[in-house]
Design a protein around this nucleic acid. Sequence first.
DNA 1: GCCGTTTTCGGCCCGACTGTTTTCAGTCG
Length: 576
Amino acid sequence: MDNAGFATIFREFADYLELKKDNPFKIRAYRRAADIFEDLNRNVAELALDGELKNIQGIGTAIEEKAREIASSGKLGALEDLKLQYPPGVMEMTRIPGVGLKTASRVFHELGIAGIDQLEAAAEDGRLEALPGMGKKTAENILKGITRLRMENTKRIPLVLADRLSKNLMDFLRSHMEICAIAAVGSLRRRKETCGDLDILVSTEDPSPISGLMAKWNKFSNMISSGEDRIIFTTTDDIEVDVIITAPEKFPFDLFVTTGSKSHYTALESIACELGYRLRNNSFTSESGKPVEIIDEADIYKALKMEYIPPELREMTGEIEAALKGSLPKLLISRDIRGDLHMHTNWSDGTSSIESMVYAAKNLGYEYIAITDHSESLKIAKGLSKAELSRQMEVLERLRTELDGIQVLSGIELEILKDGSLDYDDSILSSLDLIIASVHSAFGQPKDVMTARIVKAIRSGRVDIIAHPTGRVLGRRFGYDVDLDVVIKEAAKHNVALEINSYPERMDLDSTWARKAAESGVYIAINSDAHNVEELKFISYGLDVARRAWLEQADVINTWPISKFQAWLSRRRIRA
DNA sequence: GCCGTTTTCGGCCCGACTGTTTTCAGTCG
């Protein structure tokens, strides 16, 4: 089991202990252990079996004992016992916004409610508001929460999860049978932020073992259908997987067809028709029926007399017209990123030191980075006091004298307070190299208030970048209510950049808004928002968004050479 | 459950917001 697996089990255990109303500090200890395991760069299983886990701050004998049990048996008996006491529906209820473990536990123990549907009934017929401490309003809010959950819960899979799962599946297939070519297709290949299901295209000379093999994959749950050229099943997480089987010579063509999008493909069908071809789901021929020779996907676009359209652009948002004219954007690739302008260290809520972040960034080939810990007001993330910030700036100053080949800017992720004012005063802000500002509080403000709040920060003349402009977290919460059209207009006017935050659960701005922003003349920064060295790699998800947003180097400030980037930064000082 | 010590027991991250209260509990970030 990998470290993330240990973290999941301990977190789940803590949740069940909370249902049981166990000692809150004990619960916190398990959650802390989960955090520690997740960030550990050594294998938890090995450490547990060697008896070395206890040496880590925060892990004692009880947790080491449990980790050892998990390492040798794959599960935790105490957790299995608790799961028998609470039906799965109880935990399910905590997914309703506004319902936490305490409420779930209460309604289960006091009303015998063990699922979302039962909770809905109790909120409607008045049983819920009859409980002490609950009222009409609470019942209403829970009903609203249930509606929202059902709306959101169309079960789309975040891209990062789809990546992990598809890689796991493809590795499994490769290691158990002869495969000519294999690829994730569909929305995953188009790098959409979420995927409805998982589509895998595989070509092989002998497809007969695939079906039987799939059932042996450790994530396999239920076979839905199993045919010669298509196998559909669900995983243990109830994700639908579609394995499409094709002959090796047909792989490039099927790669094109299964990548989609549907509407992109349909549009190409009619263009093919106009040019005297027949493009069908299973063939591409001339009018006389002679197959068009396709060595790779690009040959299809070539035959249709247009530029090759990368998968990320195949969404019918103007790509075909542009490809016909030869005016597709020159999309960014990872080498284009020269710096990362948003990252945290163990000075605030990150877990890696400044030095390790800097060296990791240098290893990624970056020419510059900014250290941007949280500012004072964000207590939960250990936001830096003014004194800590100046100490950090001194540390960075010293570090610069030892560094070669990478520029380290002193930055901050600055709280935009409830009323739109900024967390530090001008004297501090003017001493920083880079200021990114963001909202982490009072998410529930009405749209006009939230918009005015962000606009005020943009107009302050102090801010370089607005981070994660909508505040959404995929699968967990919608963004706050903000008029992005207004934000974009103001950002353009005041030359403030907007961020594509690459954190996989955020991907914020999304590609539609990022494209709109760039078209309105707003510069974009693609940042990792890393909280440890590993997470610097998240930048690839921001790149996915940027590619889907048609962005080019000119649009993205951290693809610029340091001199150009610094010239842009200095505009703030001139104006201030 | 973990830690630390002026050490074997007492303390352990915060703050806003909401709805229920009349002094607090639950949720969320």
